[in-house]
Computed example of a mutant assay.
Amino acid sequence: MILDSFRLDGRVAVVTGAGRGIGAATALALAEAGADVAIAARTADQLEEVAGKVRALGRRAVVFPGDLSDTDTLTAFADTAAAELGRLDIVINNVGGTMPNTFLTTTPKFLDQAFHFNVTTAHALTVAATPHMLENDGGSVVNISSALGRVPGRGYLAYGTAKAALAHWTRMAATDLSPRIRVNAIAVGSVLTSALDVVAQQPDIKKRIEDATPLQRIGEPWEIAAAAVYLCSPAGGYVTGKILEVDGGLTAPNLDLGLPDL
């Protein structure tokens, strides 16, 4: 049966930024597909809520609160997951993000921080997880990138540059880690997470985003999670070094920040 190829029974996944939004949806989707999951984020209460839902699905869950901008924390996360769940097969590098900024106020420090939070963290967790994955049959890494890593938009220089770097890191790491570990990314568009809470509460802005999106709507976290399950499962077993665009068909940013010319 073709649907059997999407199963993840007996696998263990680590998911960063899993207290809410795309990270939480992905953790639950992986659990529904049969995986045990270790989840990390800053807020313990949010993680415990997600873990309860994972356990209700009959899967094991490990909660790991911490500052995921700290690379030592990410190393400890991978080691803890492998120790408590017995193995490690899947890495979801979801944590990331950077606030919009104007060109002249995008300081070198701001750019460095964007790169660190979106790229260095993914590298650190993957490096820590790789020896554990190699102990078994290899594994799969999925990075959450963005459509803004591909299309230019005013005000998104730091974020878009960091996500573009993450996309190319994906291609480079896939080359380094093949054939036993596959590395892919999902370039997401506008998705209804906490980052868009303000937008969802302002119908005029929400409509502008929808009108500028070819599919005429904002995405849902489960749609990104479904793509992650595909990339992690045997169904995606012949895919590595690729960026899967799940963005509603974007060819340009769908939120104009209205920044004036210099």
Rank of each mutant, 00 (worst) to 15 (best):
T121E: 00
A56T: 13
A122M: 10
P65M: 00
G138P: 09
A44P: 06
V127Y: 14
A122S: 12
M99L: 12
T121G: 13
R87L: 03
A147Y: 11
L74W: 01
R87T: 11
T121A: 01
A114G: 13
A56N: 13
L47V: 07
T120R: 13
L68R: 00
T106D: 04
A128R: 03
R60E: 15
V95W: 15
V142T: 08
V119S: 02
N94M: 05
H132G: 01
S145Y: 04
F64D: 09
K53S: 13
Q46H: 14
D45I: 07
Q46A: 15
N94A: 00
A82E: 00
M133K: 04
T106S: 06
T102F: 15
N94K: 09
D112I: 03
N94L: 03
I92S: 05
D45M: 01
A44M: 04
L85V: 14
D137V: 05
N143F: 12
N118G: 07
G58I: 08
G66V: 09
F103V: 13
F110Y: 15
P100Y: 08
V95Y: 15
G52E: 12
V50A: 08
M133V: 11
G96M: 02
L104W: 08
G52P: 15
A83V: 06
L88G: 11
A61Q: 02
P152Y: 08
N136S: 10
L148T: 08
T98R: 14
L88E: 00
T98C: 12
R55K: 10
V95T: 08
F64Y: 12
G66W: 00
V62F: 03
F77Y: 03
E49A: 10
T106P: 02
D72F: 00
I90C: 07
I90Q: 08
V95G: 07
V142P: 12
S145P: 11
D79E: 07
R60D: 11
T102C: 03
V151D: 00
A61G: 10
G52F: 15
K53R: 15
I92Q: 10
H116N: 03
R55Q: 12
P100A: 09
S146A: 13
L104V: 10
T73Q: 05
M133L: 14
S146V: 10
L104Q: 10
L125K: 02
S140Y: 05
A82D: 05
G58T: 09
L125Y: 04
L68M: 11
I90E: 01
R150L: 12
T120E: 08
T71A: 09
N93E: 03
A56K: 13
A82Q: 06
L125I: 09
T126P: 02
V142M: 05
L68V: 10
N136F: 15
A56I: 06
R55L: 00
D67P: 15
R154D: 02
